[in-house]
């Protein structure tokens, strides 16, 4: 029985795992490989290899502008979502607050509402209040989406915080504002950095909300989408590869930070 239940399934578990990894990595690898192809179209065999597409992308004004625009939106989103998220997390752990479960559930709602529904409702909302589509609307949409992630990360860290740290700070002469900035916030530190990076990634990656709320200025995903509509070319592969490498690096760093925060 032992061998049946421990050894045989383990072999098949391993096999399925590697099949999954292959399925995950193959398209990405293909995409990256094509970005080095010295031809105007995406197809096998690759034949000649080149860096020309990268040079072209780096000189592409449209691409650089879209990058900058995305980063700007991500920065604003991160700032707003982090402030709101920490605020909500503090509210949830505060003593004497009733309905914490409801507060938490409502704060997390944006994470589970389908992006499409959220985007359409926001679009209807901003036109109802006569707010133009564009940067401000995009930031609002992204912020609502990012808040739950900050809340969850900040909350996990806050819950592990000994309650009397703040008491100790108060006892030593700190008012509640000083105690927050000198004790609570540094304690949240690693979790916050992780949460902020998550906000950046969510915002940079977002397509649906941006599509419904955006104006004429394209963000990075919108630009790539527009380019794909015009036909696949290795230039798009190069752009996508750049985005992939940068976001993956940032994401892994965030994971590393939050892991350290959890173990410390």
């Amino acid at each position: 029985m032992r061998t049946l239940f421990s050894d045989v399934p383990r072999a098949s578990l391993t096999a399925f795992y590697w099949a999954f990894i292959l399925y995950l990595l193959l398209p990405l690898t293909l995409m990256m490989a094509m970005s080095f192809k010295d031809a105007n179209f995406v197809a096998f065999p690759i034949g000649e290899w080149t860096f020309d597409w990268y040079v072209k992308v780096m000189q592409d004004k449209q691409f650089l502008e879209a990058c900058l625009y995305s980063i700007m939106i991500a920065a604003a989103t991160t700032f707003a979502a982090t402030t709101l998220g920490v605020w909500i997390a503090m509210l949830i752990v505060a003593e004497g607050i009733r309905g914490q479960v409801i507060i938490f559930a409502l704060a997390c709602l944006p994470a589970v509402v389908p992006g499409m529904i959220s985007a359409i409702s926001l679009r209807i909302f901003i036109s109802t209040i006569d707010m133009p589509t564009g940067t401000a609307a995009i930031i609002l949409g992204h912020t609502v989406h990012a808040v739950p992630f900050v809340v969850v990360m900040a909350l996990t860290r806050l819950r592990s915080m000994p309650g009397n740290l703040v008491d100790a700070a108060r006892d030593l002469g700190a008012d509640s504002v000083v105690a927050f900035f000198r004790v609570t916030l540094p304690y949240l530190g690693p979790a916050l950095v992780g949460g902020m990076i998550f906000c950046v990634l969510l915002s940079i990656d977002d397509f649906v909300r941006t599509f419904f709320l955006g104006g004429y200025r394209p963000t990075l995903p919108m630009l790539i989408f527009a380019k794909v509509q015009g036909g696949m070319s290795p230039e798009i592969n190069a752009m996508a590869t750049l985005v992939l490498v940068v976001t993956a690096a940032v994401g892994l760093y965030a994971e590393f930070l939050t892991r350290r925060a959890r173990t410390r």
Partner: peptide, 20 residues
């Protein structure tokens, strides 16, 4: 009077040292 305005200090049971 709130704790930060009183001239008393506490040594807490689990010390409550600021970890950072």
């Amino acid at each position: 009077v709130p704790p930060n305005k009183r001239n008393v200090n506490i040594v807490f049971q689990d010390y409550a040292l600021f970890p950072h």
